[in-house]
Write a protein that binds this DNA or RNA. Structure first.
Length: 574
DNA sequence: GCCGTTTTCGGCCCGACTGTTTTCAGTCG
Protein backbone atom coordinates (compact mmCIF):
# COMPACT_ATOMS: atom_id res chain seq x y z
CA UNK A 1 0.00 0.00 0.00
CA UNK A 2 1.40 3.36 -1.01
CA UNK A 3 1.47 5.16 2.28
CA UNK A 4 3.45 8.18 3.40
CA UNK A 5 4.12 6.67 6.81
CA UNK A 6 5.55 3.50 5.32
CA UNK A 7 7.70 5.53 2.97
CA UNK A 8 8.83 7.74 5.86
CA UNK A 9 9.87 4.59 7.70
CA UNK A 10 11.80 3.43 4.66
CA UNK A 11 13.67 6.73 4.41
CA UNK A 12 14.38 6.68 8.13
CA UNK A 13 15.74 3.16 7.72
CA UNK A 14 17.85 4.28 4.75
CA UNK A 15 19.32 6.99 6.96
CA UNK A 16 20.25 4.45 9.62
CA UNK A 17 21.69 2.07 7.04
CA UNK A 18 23.81 4.79 5.45
CA UNK A 19 25.04 5.82 8.86
CA UNK A 20 25.98 2.24 9.64
CA UNK A 21 27.92 2.12 6.42
CA UNK A 22 29.80 5.24 7.47
CA UNK A 23 28.32 7.40 4.73
CA UNK A 24 28.54 11.19 4.71
CA UNK A 25 26.64 12.51 7.72
CA UNK A 26 24.80 15.10 5.67
CA UNK A 27 23.57 12.51 3.26
CA UNK A 28 22.19 10.66 6.26
CA UNK A 29 20.49 13.82 7.40
CA UNK A 30 18.93 14.37 3.99
CA UNK A 31 17.07 11.06 4.33
CA UNK A 32 16.15 11.77 7.93
CA UNK A 33 14.73 15.09 6.94
CA UNK A 34 12.78 13.57 4.02
CA UNK A 35 11.27 11.04 6.44
CA UNK A 36 10.31 13.84 8.80
CA UNK A 37 8.76 15.84 5.95
CA UNK A 38 6.65 12.90 4.76
CA UNK A 39 5.51 12.15 8.30
CA UNK A 40 4.16 15.72 8.57
CA UNK A 41 2.37 15.67 5.21
CA UNK A 42 -1.24 16.76 5.48
CA UNK A 43 -2.46 15.09 2.31
CA UNK A 44 -1.88 11.57 1.09
CA UNK A 45 1.31 10.84 -0.78
CA UNK A 46 -0.13 10.38 -4.27
CA UNK A 47 -1.98 13.69 -4.35
CA UNK A 48 1.00 15.46 -2.79
CA UNK A 49 3.15 14.29 -5.69
CA UNK A 50 0.43 14.92 -8.29
CA UNK A 51 0.03 18.51 -7.05
CA UNK A 52 3.72 19.19 -7.58
CA UNK A 53 4.55 19.07 -3.91
CA UNK A 54 7.95 17.49 -4.49
CA UNK A 55 9.26 20.46 -6.44
CA UNK A 56 8.12 22.91 -3.79
CA UNK A 57 9.36 21.07 -0.74
CA UNK A 58 12.67 22.06 0.76
CA UNK A 59 14.96 19.17 1.45
CA UNK A 60 13.56 16.93 -1.26
CA UNK A 61 15.71 17.08 -4.36
CA UNK A 62 16.25 15.02 -7.45
CA UNK A 63 17.46 11.78 -5.91
CA UNK A 64 14.79 11.54 -3.25
CA UNK A 65 12.03 12.65 -5.67
CA UNK A 66 12.99 9.80 -7.96
CA UNK A 67 12.82 7.35 -5.09
CA UNK A 68 9.37 8.62 -4.11
CA UNK A 69 8.18 8.19 -7.70
CA UNK A 70 9.65 4.70 -7.75
CA UNK A 71 7.85 3.86 -4.53
CA UNK A 72 4.52 5.12 -5.87
CA UNK A 73 4.94 3.14 -9.08
CA UNK A 74 6.25 -0.12 -7.66
CA UNK A 75 5.68 0.00 -3.91
CA UNK A 76 9.40 -0.52 -3.40
CA UNK A 77 12.70 1.28 -3.56
CA UNK A 78 15.48 -0.75 -5.11
CA UNK A 79 18.17 1.35 -3.44
CA UNK A 80 16.72 0.49 -0.04
CA UNK A 81 16.27 -3.21 -0.81
CA UNK A 82 19.88 -3.40 -1.91
CA UNK A 83 21.13 -1.41 1.04
CA UNK A 84 19.28 -3.72 3.41
CA UNK A 85 21.03 -6.79 2.09
CA UNK A 86 24.40 -5.12 2.45
CA UNK A 87 23.92 -4.31 6.15
CA UNK A 88 23.28 -7.05 8.73
CA UNK A 89 19.88 -6.68 10.40
CA UNK A 90 21.35 -7.15 13.87
CA UNK A 91 23.02 -3.74 13.65
CA UNK A 92 19.55 -2.16 13.81
CA UNK A 93 19.06 -3.81 17.19
CA UNK A 94 22.53 -2.99 18.47
CA UNK A 95 22.30 0.76 17.91
CA UNK A 96 19.17 0.93 20.08
CA UNK A 97 21.38 0.17 23.07
CA UNK A 98 22.47 3.37 24.85
CA UNK A 99 26.20 3.86 24.44
CA UNK A 100 26.31 1.95 21.17
CA UNK A 101 26.32 3.97 17.99
CA UNK A 102 26.87 2.92 14.39
CA UNK A 103 30.64 2.82 14.56
CA UNK A 104 30.95 0.65 17.63
CA UNK A 105 28.04 -1.58 16.56
CA UNK A 106 29.75 -2.24 13.24
CA UNK A 107 33.04 -2.94 15.00
CA UNK A 108 31.33 -5.53 17.21
CA UNK A 109 29.78 -7.21 14.23
CA UNK A 110 32.97 -7.28 12.22
CA UNK A 111 35.39 -8.21 14.97
CA UNK A 112 33.31 -10.50 17.15
CA UNK A 113 30.70 -11.68 14.68
CA UNK A 114 27.86 -10.61 17.00
CA UNK A 115 24.59 -11.82 15.44
CA UNK A 116 22.04 -10.89 18.10
CA UNK A 117 21.51 -8.78 21.20
CA UNK A 118 21.72 -11.96 23.27
CA UNK A 119 25.12 -12.77 21.82
CA UNK A 120 26.32 -9.30 22.65
CA UNK A 121 25.31 -9.73 26.27
CA UNK A 122 27.11 -13.06 26.38
CA UNK A 123 30.22 -11.57 24.79
CA UNK A 124 30.23 -8.81 27.42
CA UNK A 125 29.96 -11.35 30.23
CA UNK A 126 32.81 -13.32 28.68
CA UNK A 127 34.85 -10.14 28.74
CA UNK A 128 35.45 -10.27 25.01
CA UNK A 129 34.77 -6.61 24.23
CA UNK A 130 37.53 -5.14 26.34
CA UNK A 131 40.62 -5.29 24.23
CA UNK A 132 39.02 -4.57 20.87
CA UNK A 133 40.47 -1.42 19.32
CA UNK A 134 38.58 1.57 20.68
CA UNK A 135 36.91 -0.55 23.37
CA UNK A 136 37.87 -1.02 27.00
CA UNK A 137 36.48 -2.35 30.24
CA UNK A 138 34.42 0.78 30.86
CA UNK A 139 32.81 0.56 27.45
CA UNK A 140 31.93 -3.06 28.05
CA UNK A 141 30.29 -2.25 31.37
CA UNK A 142 28.40 0.64 29.85
CA UNK A 143 27.03 -1.61 27.12
CA UNK A 144 25.88 -4.15 29.71
CA UNK A 145 24.07 -1.39 31.57
CA UNK A 146 22.54 -0.20 28.33
CA UNK A 147 21.31 -3.73 27.64
CA UNK A 148 19.63 -3.84 31.06
CA UNK A 149 17.96 -0.51 30.41
CA UNK A 150 16.57 -1.57 27.05
CA UNK A 151 15.34 -4.87 28.46
CA UNK A 152 13.54 -3.27 31.37
CA UNK A 153 11.78 -0.39 29.69
CA UNK A 154 12.38 -0.65 25.95
CA UNK A 155 14.09 2.66 26.61
CA UNK A 156 10.78 4.54 26.81
CA UNK A 157 8.59 5.75 29.66
CA UNK A 158 5.06 7.08 29.79
CA UNK A 159 4.86 10.85 30.15
CA UNK A 160 2.67 10.34 33.22
CA UNK A 161 5.36 8.22 34.91
CA UNK A 162 8.11 10.82 34.63
CA UNK A 163 6.53 14.27 34.37
CA UNK A 164 5.32 14.52 38.01
CA UNK A 165 8.59 12.99 39.22
CA UNK A 166 10.62 15.46 37.16
CA UNK A 167 8.65 18.43 38.55
CA UNK A 168 9.23 17.19 42.09
CA UNK A 169 12.98 16.94 41.50
CA UNK A 170 13.05 20.41 39.91
CA UNK A 171 11.26 21.76 43.02
CA UNK A 172 13.87 20.12 45.22
CA UNK A 173 16.77 21.57 43.22
CA UNK A 174 15.20 25.05 43.38
CA UNK A 175 15.29 24.84 47.16
CA UNK A 176 19.07 24.33 47.21
CA UNK A 177 21.50 27.14 48.17
CA UNK A 178 23.00 29.02 45.23
CA UNK A 179 20.31 27.82 42.82
CA UNK A 180 18.27 30.62 41.26
CA UNK A 181 16.22 28.56 38.81
CA UNK A 182 15.52 24.97 37.81
CA UNK A 183 13.16 23.80 35.15
CA UNK A 184 12.17 20.57 33.47
CA UNK A 185 13.19 20.61 29.80
CA UNK A 186 13.49 18.00 27.04
CA UNK A 187 10.64 15.96 25.64
CA UNK A 188 8.74 16.15 28.95
CA UNK A 189 8.49 19.90 28.49
CA UNK A 190 7.43 19.32 24.89
CA UNK A 191 4.83 16.86 26.27
CA UNK A 192 5.72 13.93 24.11
CA UNK A 193 3.46 10.97 25.00
CA UNK A 194 6.47 8.79 25.78
CA UNK A 195 9.90 10.00 26.76
CA UNK A 196 13.33 8.50 27.17
CA UNK A 197 14.70 10.43 30.12
CA UNK A 198 14.32 13.47 32.35
CA UNK A 199 16.15 16.70 31.48
CA UNK A 200 16.49 19.45 34.05
CA UNK A 201 18.23 22.79 33.50
CA UNK A 202 19.59 24.55 36.57
CA UNK A 203 20.82 28.12 37.02
CA UNK A 204 23.39 28.27 39.80
CA UNK A 205 25.73 30.98 41.07
CA UNK A 206 29.41 30.53 40.31
CA UNK A 207 30.06 29.55 43.92
CA UNK A 208 27.30 26.95 44.21
CA UNK A 209 28.44 23.41 44.77
CA UNK A 210 26.74 21.45 41.99
CA UNK A 211 27.96 18.09 43.20
CA UNK A 212 26.42 18.64 46.63
CA UNK A 213 22.86 19.22 45.53
CA UNK A 214 22.98 16.62 42.80
CA UNK A 215 23.87 13.81 45.18
CA UNK A 216 21.20 15.07 47.59
CA UNK A 217 18.41 14.64 45.04
CA UNK A 218 16.02 12.05 46.46
CA UNK A 219 15.81 8.81 44.52
CA UNK A 220 19.22 8.89 42.87
CA UNK A 221 20.62 5.40 42.41
CA UNK A 222 24.00 6.33 40.98
CA UNK A 223 25.88 8.80 38.82
CA UNK A 224 26.40 7.73 35.22
CA UNK A 225 28.65 10.59 34.17
CA UNK A 226 29.64 13.90 35.64
CA UNK A 227 31.26 16.97 34.14
CA UNK A 228 31.26 20.57 35.27
CA UNK A 229 28.01 21.49 33.50
CA UNK A 230 26.34 18.19 32.74
CA UNK A 231 25.55 15.30 35.04
CA UNK A 232 23.76 12.08 34.11
CA UNK A 233 22.06 10.07 36.82
CA UNK A 234 20.16 6.83 37.11
CA UNK A 235 17.13 7.12 39.37
CA UNK A 236 15.85 4.31 41.56
CA UNK A 237 12.59 4.34 39.58
CA UNK A 238 14.56 3.12 36.56
CA UNK A 239 14.56 6.32 34.54
CA UNK A 240 17.71 8.23 33.66
CA UNK A 241 18.07 11.94 34.22
CA UNK A 242 20.36 14.61 32.77
CA UNK A 243 20.99 17.75 34.82
CA UNK A 244 22.67 20.74 33.16
CA UNK A 245 24.05 23.50 35.29
CA UNK A 246 24.58 26.97 33.81
CA UNK A 247 25.12 30.53 35.06
CA UNK A 248 21.91 32.51 35.63
CA UNK A 249 22.58 34.74 32.60
CA UNK A 250 22.68 31.67 30.38
CA UNK A 251 19.57 30.01 31.78
CA UNK A 252 17.05 31.06 29.11
CA UNK A 253 19.27 29.97 26.23
CA UNK A 254 20.15 26.71 27.97
CA UNK A 255 16.52 25.98 28.78
CA UNK A 256 15.70 26.54 25.15
CA UNK A 257 18.57 24.38 24.00
CA UNK A 258 17.70 21.43 26.20
CA UNK A 259 14.01 21.59 25.40
CA UNK A 260 14.61 20.67 21.75
CA UNK A 261 13.53 19.17 19.50
CA UNK A 262 16.53 18.40 17.35
CA UNK A 263 14.53 19.25 14.23
CA UNK A 264 13.38 22.56 15.70
CA UNK A 265 16.97 23.47 16.54
CA UNK A 266 18.33 22.62 13.13
CA UNK A 267 15.68 24.80 11.49
CA UNK A 268 16.17 27.60 13.98
CA UNK A 269 19.95 27.62 13.66
CA UNK A 270 19.63 27.72 9.90
CA UNK A 271 17.40 30.77 10.28
CA UNK A 272 19.84 32.36 12.74
CA UNK A 273 22.70 31.86 10.34
CA UNK A 274 20.74 33.65 7.60
CA UNK A 275 20.48 36.59 9.97
CA UNK A 276 24.19 36.49 10.73
CA UNK A 277 23.66 35.06 14.20
CA UNK A 278 24.90 31.94 15.88
CA UNK A 279 22.99 29.86 18.43
CA UNK A 280 24.57 27.59 20.96
CA UNK A 281 23.41 26.38 24.34
CA UNK A 282 24.77 29.47 26.09
CA UNK A 283 23.01 32.07 24.00
CA UNK A 284 22.97 34.04 20.80
CA UNK A 285 26.11 35.39 19.20
CA UNK A 286 26.48 38.08 16.57
CA UNK A 287 28.92 37.55 13.71
CA UNK A 288 31.63 39.46 15.58
CA UNK A 289 31.36 37.05 18.50
CA UNK A 290 29.45 39.51 20.67
CA UNK A 291 27.00 37.76 23.01
CA UNK A 292 23.38 38.86 22.70
CA UNK A 293 21.81 38.61 26.14
CA UNK A 294 18.34 37.13 26.43
CA UNK A 295 16.42 37.19 29.70
CA UNK A 296 13.84 34.59 28.70
CA UNK A 297 12.75 32.49 25.78
CA UNK A 298 10.39 35.21 24.58
CA UNK A 299 13.41 37.48 24.06
CA UNK A 300 15.34 34.65 22.50
CA UNK A 301 12.73 34.19 19.78
CA UNK A 302 12.22 37.94 19.41
CA UNK A 303 15.93 38.37 18.68
CA UNK A 304 15.40 36.04 15.74
CA UNK A 305 12.37 37.97 14.50
CA UNK A 306 9.90 35.38 15.74
CA UNK A 307 6.89 35.24 18.04
CA UNK A 308 7.31 33.06 21.10
CA UNK A 309 6.91 29.37 20.23
CA UNK A 310 5.42 27.19 22.96
CA UNK A 311 7.54 24.13 23.82
CA UNK A 312 4.80 21.76 22.64
CA UNK A 313 5.05 23.19 19.12
CA UNK A 314 8.82 22.80 18.79
CA UNK A 315 8.81 19.69 16.63
CA UNK A 316 10.20 21.03 13.36
CA UNK A 317 6.90 21.29 11.49
CA UNK A 318 6.12 24.76 10.12
CA UNK A 319 6.22 26.54 13.49
CA UNK A 320 9.04 28.89 12.45
CA UNK A 321 7.21 30.21 9.40
CA UNK A 322 4.03 30.80 11.36
CA UNK A 323 5.93 32.44 14.22
CA UNK A 324 7.56 34.77 11.69
CA UNK A 325 4.15 35.91 10.44
CA UNK A 326 2.51 36.02 13.90
CA UNK A 327 0.16 33.22 12.88
CA UNK A 328 0.67 30.70 15.68
CA UNK A 329 -2.49 29.62 17.52
CA UNK A 330 -3.16 30.65 21.12
CA UNK A 331 -3.02 27.20 22.71
CA UNK A 332 -5.66 25.88 25.09
CA UNK A 333 -4.78 25.93 28.81
CA UNK A 334 -5.83 23.60 31.63
CA UNK A 335 -7.86 26.41 33.18
CA UNK A 336 -9.96 26.65 30.02
CA UNK A 337 -11.62 23.31 30.79
CA UNK A 338 -15.11 23.88 32.20
CA UNK A 339 -16.39 20.33 32.57
CA UNK A 340 -15.72 16.75 31.51
CA UNK A 341 -17.36 13.97 29.53
CA UNK A 342 -16.50 10.26 29.54
CA UNK A 343 -16.61 9.26 33.20
CA UNK A 344 -17.40 5.76 34.53
CA UNK A 345 -19.06 4.82 37.82
CA UNK A 346 -19.86 1.67 39.80
CA UNK A 347 -22.86 1.22 37.48
CA UNK A 348 -20.32 -0.38 35.12
CA UNK A 349 -16.58 -0.80 35.75
CA UNK A 350 -15.80 2.37 37.72
CA UNK A 351 -14.55 2.18 41.31
CA UNK A 352 -16.56 5.14 42.68
CA UNK A 353 -20.27 5.85 42.83
CA UNK A 354 -22.04 8.39 40.68
CA UNK A 355 -22.33 10.68 43.68
CA UNK A 356 -18.62 10.36 44.54
CA UNK A 357 -17.57 11.13 41.00
CA UNK A 358 -19.88 14.15 40.93
CA UNK A 359 -18.33 15.43 44.15
CA UNK A 360 -14.81 14.93 42.75
CA UNK A 361 -15.72 16.93 39.64
CA UNK A 362 -17.13 19.74 41.77
CA UNK A 363 -13.95 19.83 43.86
CA UNK A 364 -11.94 20.44 40.71
CA UNK A 365 -13.99 23.53 39.97
CA UNK A 366 -15.69 22.13 36.90
CA UNK A 367 -19.35 22.91 36.23
CA UNK A 368 -20.61 19.79 34.48
CA UNK A 369 -20.02 16.10 34.16
CA UNK A 370 -21.03 13.66 31.43
CA UNK A 371 -21.52 10.16 32.81
CA UNK A 372 -20.82 7.44 30.26
CA UNK A 373 -20.84 3.94 31.62
CA UNK A 374 -20.33 1.00 29.29
CA UNK A 375 -23.11 -0.36 27.10
CA UNK A 376 -24.63 -3.83 27.37
CA UNK A 377 -22.30 -5.68 24.97
CA UNK A 378 -19.34 -4.80 27.18
CA UNK A 379 -20.11 -7.61 29.62
CA UNK A 380 -16.47 -7.70 30.78
CA UNK A 381 -17.06 -4.14 32.08
CA UNK A 382 -20.55 -4.85 33.46
CA UNK A 383 -22.19 -2.88 30.64
CA UNK A 384 -25.61 -1.42 31.40
CA UNK A 385 -28.81 -3.28 30.55
CA UNK A 386 -31.69 -1.12 29.38
CA UNK A 387 -33.40 -1.31 32.82
CA UNK A 388 -30.20 -0.10 34.51
CA UNK A 389 -29.99 2.82 32.10
CA UNK A 390 -33.39 3.96 33.34
CA UNK A 391 -32.36 3.50 36.95
CA UNK A 392 -29.16 5.53 36.46
CA UNK A 393 -31.12 8.28 34.76
CA UNK A 394 -33.36 8.57 37.81
CA UNK A 395 -30.36 8.99 40.11
CA UNK A 396 -28.84 11.63 37.82
CA UNK A 397 -32.12 13.56 37.85
CA UNK A 398 -32.23 13.39 41.63
CA UNK A 399 -28.64 14.68 41.99
CA UNK A 400 -29.25 17.46 39.49
CA UNK A 401 -32.29 18.57 41.47
CA UNK A 402 -30.15 18.78 44.63
CA UNK A 403 -27.22 20.66 43.15
CA UNK A 404 -27.12 24.13 41.71
CA UNK A 405 -23.43 24.36 40.88
CA UNK A 406 -22.97 21.13 38.92
CA UNK A 407 -24.90 19.67 36.02
CA UNK A 408 -24.72 15.96 35.31
CA UNK A 409 -25.46 14.78 31.79
CA UNK A 410 -26.65 11.24 31.23
CA UNK A 411 -24.56 9.69 28.50
CA UNK A 412 -23.34 6.25 27.49
CA UNK A 413 -20.15 4.81 26.03
CA UNK A 414 -21.74 2.61 23.43
CA UNK A 415 -19.76 -0.19 21.80
CA UNK A 416 -19.36 0.02 18.06
CA UNK A 417 -20.22 -3.52 16.98
CA UNK A 418 -18.14 -5.21 14.25
CA UNK A 419 -20.63 -4.19 11.54
CA UNK A 420 -20.58 -0.52 12.61
CA UNK A 421 -23.98 -0.57 14.29
CA UNK A 422 -24.34 0.53 17.89
CA UNK A 423 -25.18 -1.40 20.97
CA UNK A 424 -28.69 -0.05 21.57
CA UNK A 425 -31.51 0.71 19.14
CA UNK A 426 -31.99 4.37 18.18
CA UNK A 427 -35.02 4.82 20.45
CA UNK A 428 -32.83 3.98 23.47
CA UNK A 429 -29.88 6.09 22.22
CA UNK A 430 -32.28 9.02 21.81
CA UNK A 431 -32.94 8.98 25.56
CA UNK A 432 -29.33 9.80 26.43
CA UNK A 433 -28.18 13.41 26.58
CA UNK A 434 -25.21 12.41 24.46
CA UNK A 435 -23.41 9.30 23.20
CA UNK A 436 -19.74 8.33 22.96
CA UNK A 437 -19.16 5.50 20.49
CA UNK A 438 -16.05 3.34 20.92
CA UNK A 439 -14.53 0.13 19.58
CA UNK A 440 -13.88 -2.45 22.30
CA UNK A 441 -13.87 -5.71 20.37
CA UNK A 442 -12.82 -7.33 17.06
CA UNK A 443 -9.63 -5.27 16.92
CA UNK A 444 -8.18 -7.41 14.17
CA UNK A 445 -10.46 -6.37 11.34
CA UNK A 446 -8.77 -5.21 8.14
CA UNK A 447 -8.07 -1.52 7.69
CA UNK A 448 -10.91 -1.23 5.18
CA UNK A 449 -13.41 -3.02 7.44
CA UNK A 450 -12.38 -1.09 10.55
CA UNK A 451 -12.59 2.22 8.70
CA UNK A 452 -16.04 1.36 7.32
CA UNK A 453 -17.14 0.24 10.77
CA UNK A 454 -16.17 3.48 12.48
CA UNK A 455 -17.38 5.75 9.69
CA UNK A 456 -20.74 3.98 9.74
CA UNK A 457 -21.04 4.49 13.50
CA UNK A 458 -20.40 8.21 13.05
CA UNK A 459 -23.26 8.51 10.56
CA UNK A 460 -25.65 7.62 13.41
CA UNK A 461 -27.30 10.91 14.39
CA UNK A 462 -27.13 10.10 18.10
CA UNK A 463 -23.36 9.58 18.16
CA UNK A 464 -21.84 12.76 19.61
CA UNK A 465 -18.20 11.72 20.08
CA UNK A 466 -15.92 9.04 18.68
CA UNK A 467 -14.09 7.50 21.69
CA UNK A 468 -10.38 6.52 21.69
CA UNK A 469 -10.14 6.51 17.92
CA UNK A 470 -7.30 4.01 17.40
CA UNK A 471 -7.52 1.82 20.52
CA UNK A 472 -3.79 1.97 21.11
CA UNK A 473 -2.18 1.32 24.49
CA UNK A 474 1.15 3.13 24.69
CA UNK A 475 4.21 0.90 25.09
CA UNK A 476 1.94 -2.13 24.97
CA UNK A 477 -0.32 -2.36 21.94
CA UNK A 478 -0.57 -0.62 18.58
CA UNK A 479 -3.93 0.76 17.55
CA UNK A 480 -6.12 -1.14 15.13
CA UNK A 481 -5.57 -0.68 11.41
CA UNK A 482 -7.38 2.47 10.41
CA UNK A 483 -7.51 5.00 7.57
CA UNK A 484 -7.37 7.98 9.91
CA UNK A 485 -7.71 10.71 7.23
CA UNK A 486 -10.94 9.02 6.10
CA UNK A 487 -12.20 8.87 9.69
CA UNK A 488 -11.36 12.54 10.24
CA UNK A 489 -13.09 13.50 7.00
CA UNK A 490 -16.19 11.56 7.99
CA UNK A 491 -16.19 13.19 11.42
CA UNK A 492 -16.16 16.60 9.75
CA UNK A 493 -18.94 15.69 7.34
CA UNK A 494 -21.21 14.12 9.97
CA UNK A 495 -20.58 16.71 12.67
CA UNK A 496 -19.17 14.09 15.05
CA UNK A 497 -16.63 15.21 17.61
CA UNK A 498 -13.47 13.19 18.22
CA UNK A 499 -12.27 12.47 21.72
CA UNK A 500 -8.80 13.17 23.00
CA UNK A 501 -8.76 10.33 25.48
CA UNK A 502 -6.65 11.71 28.30
CA UNK A 503 -5.80 8.40 29.95
CA UNK A 504 -1.99 8.52 29.84
CA UNK A 505 -1.83 4.98 28.46
CA UNK A 506 -4.00 6.02 25.54
CA UNK A 507 -3.63 9.72 24.60
CA UNK A 508 -5.76 8.86 21.62
CA UNK A 509 -6.43 10.85 19.31
CA UNK A 510 -2.69 11.22 18.84
CA UNK A 511 -1.50 14.84 18.74
CA UNK A 512 -0.15 14.28 15.24
CA UNK A 513 -3.72 14.12 13.89
CA UNK A 514 -5.19 17.04 15.82
CA UNK A 515 -4.30 19.77 13.36
CA UNK A 516 -5.79 17.85 10.49
CA UNK A 517 -8.96 17.26 12.49
CA UNK A 518 -9.24 20.96 13.24
CA UNK A 519 -8.69 21.87 9.62
CA UNK A 520 -11.44 19.43 8.62
CA UNK A 521 -13.86 21.29 10.87
CA UNK A 522 -13.88 18.62 13.57
CA UNK A 523 -14.43 19.62 17.20
CA UNK A 524 -12.57 17.70 19.88
CA UNK A 525 -13.30 16.90 23.51
CA UNK A 526 -10.68 16.33 26.21
CA UNK A 527 -12.10 13.29 28.01
CA UNK A 528 -10.55 11.78 31.14
CA UNK A 529 -12.13 8.33 30.67
CA UNK A 530 -11.98 8.28 34.47
CA UNK A 531 -12.78 5.07 36.37
CA UNK A 532 -11.90 6.63 39.77
CA UNK A 533 -11.99 10.17 41.21
CA UNK A 534 -8.22 10.77 40.95
CA UNK A 535 -8.30 9.78 37.28
CA UNK A 536 -10.20 12.98 36.58
CA UNK A 537 -6.76 14.60 36.77
CA UNK A 538 -5.86 12.83 33.53
CA UNK A 539 -7.38 15.91 31.93
CA UNK A 540 -3.94 17.44 32.35
CA UNK A 541 -2.49 14.95 29.86
CA UNK A 542 -5.37 15.44 27.47
CA UNK A 543 -4.81 19.20 27.46
CA UNK A 544 -1.14 18.51 26.78
CA UNK A 545 -2.10 16.50 23.70
CA UNK A 546 -4.44 19.27 22.52
CA UNK A 547 -1.70 21.86 22.93
CA UNK A 548 0.79 19.67 21.14
CA UNK A 549 -1.79 19.31 18.37
CA UNK A 550 -1.97 23.13 17.90
CA UNK A 551 -5.50 23.36 19.34
CA UNK A 552 -7.10 26.43 20.91
CA UNK A 553 -9.87 26.57 23.51
CA UNK A 554 -12.36 27.13 20.68
CA UNK A 555 -11.45 23.74 19.16
CA UNK A 556 -12.39 21.90 22.36
CA UNK A 557 -16.03 21.35 23.27
CA UNK A 558 -15.54 21.18 27.04
CA UNK A 559 -14.18 24.69 27.33
CA UNK A 560 -17.71 26.03 26.91
CA UNK A 561 -20.51 26.59 29.39
CA UNK A 562 -22.62 23.49 30.06
CA UNK A 563 -25.58 24.32 27.80
CA UNK A 564 -23.37 25.27 24.85
CA UNK A 565 -21.25 22.15 25.23
CA UNK A 566 -24.33 19.96 25.36
CA UNK A 567 -25.83 21.71 22.34
CA UNK A 568 -22.67 20.93 20.34
CA UNK A 569 -22.90 17.28 21.34
CA UNK A 570 -26.51 17.18 20.16
CA UNK A 571 -26.18 19.20 16.98
CA UNK A 572 -26.58 16.13 14.75
CA UNK A 573 -30.05 15.57 16.15
CA UNK A 574 -31.45 18.79 14.67
C1' DG B 1 21.69 14.23 -0.69
C1' DC B 2 20.34 19.22 -0.83
C1' DC B 3 21.02 23.96 -1.75
C1' DG B 4 22.25 28.80 -3.82
C1' DT B 5 19.94 37.22 -5.55
C1' DT B 6 27.65 36.60 -3.28
C1' DT B 7 27.93 30.17 -4.64
C1' DT B 8 26.60 24.51 -9.47
C1' DC B 9 31.11 23.59 -5.27
C1' DG B 10 31.54 23.61 -0.66
C1' DG B 11 29.15 24.16 2.80
C1' DC B 12 25.51 21.68 5.81
C1' DC B 13 23.73 23.30 14.13
C1' DC B 14 26.61 22.92 17.96
C1' DG B 15 28.81 21.48 22.12
C1' DA B 16 29.66 18.22 26.44
C1' DC B 17 31.39 14.12 28.12
C1' DT B 18 33.68 9.51 28.04
C1' DG B 19 37.04 6.37 27.11
C1' DT B 20 40.87 5.17 25.00
C1' DT B 21 44.02 7.83 23.67
C1' DT B 22 48.74 11.09 24.13
C1' DT B 23 45.26 14.59 20.39
C1' DC B 24 40.70 12.62 19.30
C1' DA B 25 36.72 9.55 17.81
C1' DG B 26 32.32 8.15 19.21
C1' DT B 27 28.01 9.01 21.29
C1' DC B 28 24.38 11.83 22.77
C1' DG B 29 21.02 15.41 22.77
Amino acid sequence: MADKHELAQIFAAVAVLLELKGENHFKVRAYESAAHTLEQLKTDLASFVADGGLEETKGIGKAISQKIAEYLATGKIAFYEELKTSVPAVLFELIKIPGLGPKKAMALYENLGIQSVGELEYACRENRLAGLPGFGLKTQEKILEGLEYVKRFQGQQLLSDVWPLAEKIADFIRSQPGVSAAQVAGSIRRRKETVKDIDIVVAADAGADGAAFITAIPGVERILSQGTTKISLALVSGVNMDVRIVRPAEFAAALHHFTGSKEHHIALRGLAKEKGLKINEYGLEAADGRRIAVRDEQEFYRALGLDYIEPELREGADELELAASSALPLLIKEQDITGVFHVHTTYSDGSATLEEMAEAVRQRGWRYLGITDHSRTAVYARGLRVETVVEQRREIDRLNAQNQDLTIFAGIESDILPDGSLDYPDEILAQFDFVIASVHSSFRQSEADMTRRIVKAMTNRYVSILGHATGRILLARDGYELDMPAVIRAAGETGTAIEINANPYRLDLDWRWCRQAKESGVLLAVNPDAHAPEELDYVRYGVAVARKGWLTAADIINTRPAEQALALLRRKRN
